[in-house]
């Protein structure tokens, strides 16, 4: 564990707490893409297949349970919670995210570290996480103004993988046989997808204005 990875995990945890706060406190999921939440649920379920077989550390196991539990809880809320589901606008959340699932799975079948059930699903989860934010970013562009909690949620979610990139650089130089090229390339693509959001978020913060993404 190094400071970059720990900062990344904490930033990821904060993004989830901000999202849970928004949905729980406002009893509303306006501005949140259900499709992105479903993709994240698939990402964690596909990545943490080793949850009960490989024990790395208490921290690792607890964080995996938190990530799986929170993503499934958000999806459940947005689909079935009496009050929250009324604020879900499916007319704006129209990204065809099943293409992302199919495409990433196909890619994982060809590009992986080892052709085994676990490794293919792990590579699939890495590729899918890189593009999982697309429905959410498209929804924010469509819905124009972004409420503060949603903006902070996306900001922290984008920042966490940026910390992981620093972690991979650090591990590359400090550990001899360290090679995480699948995670690195995907992580760079993932963080790059947030570039314009970070830019508009910074502009709105500098001008102390409401965050608006150009359509």
């Amino acid at each position: 564990m190094n400071i970059f990875r720990f900062a990344g995990d904490m930033t990821h945890l904060i993004s989830i707490l901000v999202l849970l706060l928004k949905v729980y406190a406002t009893k509303s999921c306006s501005g949140i893409s259900l499709k992105t939440q479903e993709l994240y649920g698939i990402v964690f379920l596909a990545r943490y297949l080793d949850l009960f077989t490989d024990f790395i550390s208490v921290y690792n196991t607890v964080m995996k349970l938190v990530f799986i539990g929170s993503s499934l809880a958000i999806v459940w809320c947005m689909r079935f919670h009496r009050v929250v589901k009324r604020s879900y606008d499916r007319d704006v959340d129209t990204f065809r995210h099943y293409f992302l699932v199919g495409g990433c799975f196909l890619l994982a079948l060809f590009v992986h570290e080892k052709f085994s059930f676990r490794e293919v699903f792990w590579a699939f989860s890495i590729y899918l996480e890189a593009v999982a934010i697309l429905p959410q970013l498209i929804l924010l562009q469509r819905s124009g103004n972004v409420d503060n909690l949603t903006g902070q949620y996306v900001l922290f979610l984008g920042a966490y993988r940026g910390f992981y990139i620093l972690n991979w650089i650090y591990r590359y130089f400090t550990e001899d046989q360290f090679s995480r090229w699948i995670s690195c390339v995907s992580g760079l693509v993932q963080t790059a997808l947030y570039a314009d959001f970070f830019y508009y978020y910074f502009i709105s913060w500098k001008n102390n204005a409401k965050l608006k993404l150009p359509a």
């Binding site: 990875r5 995990d9 990821h12 990545r47 080793d50 490989d54 790395i56 690792n60 964080m63 995996k64 990530f67 570290e113 080892k114 490794e119 792990w122 992981y164 972690n167 046989q177 360290f178 090679s179 995480r180 995670s183």
Partner: peptide, 10 residues
């Protein structure tokens, strides 16, 4: 084939 590294990252 060499065993892939243990997945110690989240």
């Amino acid at each position: 084939t060499k065993e892939p590294l243990a997945k110690d990252e989240l």
